[in-house]
Design a binder for these strands. Sequence first.
DNA 1: AAACATTTGTGCGTATGTATG
DNA 2: TCATACATACGCACAAATGTT
Lengths: 256, 256
Amino acid sequence: MKKMADGGASTLERRSGVAIWRQIADDIRHGIARGTFDEGGRLPPETALAERFGVNRHTVRSAIAALVHEGVLRSEQGRGTFIERRKRLSYPIGARTRFSDGLRDQTSARRGHLLDHAVEGANPRVAAALGLAEGAAVIRMETMSEADGRPVSRATSWFDAARFPGFAEAYAETGSITLAFKRFGVGDYFRKSTLVSARHADNADLDDLHLAPGAIVLVAVALNVDDAGTPVQFAETRFAADRVELSVATEARNER
Amino acid sequence: MKKMADGGASTLERRSGVAIWRQIADDIRHGIARGTFDEGGRLPPETALAERFGVNRHTVRSAIAALVHEGVLRSEQGRGTFIERRKRLSYPIGARTRFSDGLRDQTSARRGHLLDHAVEGANPRVAAALGLAEGAAVIRMETMSEADGRPVSRATSWFDAARFPGFAEAYAETGSITLAFKRFGVGDYFRKSTLVSARHADNADLDDLHLAPGAIVLVAVALNVDDAGTPVQFAETRFAADRVELSVATEARNER
DNA sequence: AAACATTTGTGCGTATGTATG
DNA sequence: TCATACATACGCACAAATGTT
C-alpha cells in the first residue's frame, strides 16, 4: 500500500549533497505550514524529534537553529521550542490580477518598493514578449513588496521605453502600476498569461527576500496587455515559496 | 546597480547545509532549462565552469556526475559534456483543464498510471473541499503520469464514495478521468480553483518522480466541479519543478 | 524550601563527507 | 591519487532554566 499524501515522517537521504539537518528543517517547516504540529503551537521536544527522524539530537538542534534564524521557530531554555509563524499568504492570479492588489485582506501592513530602474536594450526574451525588436530600448524596473514587515516578492518588470518614457518615475511617484499606466493613457490592462515555475533561490533572491540557502522561490512570468491586446508590461516575479502560494481562480463560464 | 534578472553566475553559499556541488548542479540544471548553455548543446569544459563558479574542478565534476545520474547531461571521454534533456514541459491550468490533457502536443509519448486506491474517511481538508462531513467515505486514488519515459507528475485525488462507487476501477478500465465521470452521469466538469505552491520533494516524491534529494516539486491543489457547481474531485498534484512549468492562460474577456 | 522531571544549551572526542591544491 | 582543512553527524555527559511534586 502506497503512503498517503498527508503522510508522516519521510526517510532522510545521506550522501545527497543536502545536509540531514537541512532536510529536517525543510520537513519541519513544511509540517508547520501544513498544520502537523498543532499541539498548542509547540514543537515536540528535541529528543522526540531526534527519535522520530532517527538522528542525533545535535542534528535536530541544527535544523531548529536554522528555523529560528529564519523566524519560523523560537526556542526557550527549559520550556521548549515554539512556532512563531504559521500560515502562507495566498496570492491570486487571474485576468484582472494587479501586482499591487490581492494581499490586502490578508495582512495588516503591505508595502511596495522601487529598488532600481534603468533603460537598456531588450534581450531576445523580453523583446519577444513585448513585441519589440531585439535591442529596442526598454525600461527595467526592480521592485519588492513586503507584508507584515517580511519581504514577500521581488519582481523585475520591463516596459517599452518609447511608449512609456519615464515610467519608473511615474511609478515611484504614484506607488502604483495602475496609476502610472493611467498617466500614459492606458486606462485598463489585463493579465494575458502567467507561467509558474519553481527553483532554488539564487544569491540575489536570498539577499532580497531574506531566505536561507537552499530555499525555494516560486517564479511567475507574466504578460500584461492593454485594451487593444498590445503588450504593455512583461514581468518576472519571485515569491518566497514558504510564505506564499498562488491561487488560480477560474470562474466557471457557460461556454462549450 | 542591482543585478539583472537574466543575470550570470550566482555566488555559492558555504555552511548552508547544501553542498557546493549540489548548488552548482542546481544552477546548471536551471541554466539549461533557461537556455543559457545554447552553444550547440554542449556544456563548457570543466575547467571553464570551475573558473566561472570559482571552485575546484573536482567540485564541478561532482555536480556534473549528479546531473549525468539524473539524465540531464551525458559525458564523453575526450569530447565533452552534452545536454540530454533541455526544455520544460508547459502544463496549462484553466477552467477546462483536464489532468490527462494538455501535454499531448509537446511530447511523443505520454501515459498515466493508477498506482493505488482505497476507500477511507475524509480528513478535514478533503471533507471541506468536497463539501462532505468529516469522516465521510471517500475514494482516494494515487496516480502518476509520464512523458517521454520520464515521470512528470504524481497526484492524489479524492472522490465522494457515495456518489462515485467504484470510481477507481472505472478509471483503471478507461484510463481517463473524463470517461470515468461519464459512467456516473457527469458529462462535463470544470476546474474551479487551483492553489499553486512549491516545496522540497519529500521521500515519496523522490521515489515516485525519480528526483534527487533537495529537488523541488510544484504542488497544485485543485478542485473540480460539475455543471451544477457541486465538487466532484479534489486533487493534489506534485510536479517535478525542473521538468514542468504551469501555464495560467487568462483569455481577455469583455467583462468589466 | 527541596527534590525531581523535563527540556534546552554546551563541551568533547570521533568518524565520515565535502572541497581544495 | 594523495594530503590537508573544514563541515557534518554521532554518542556521551553535564549544565542551566523551567515547572511540578
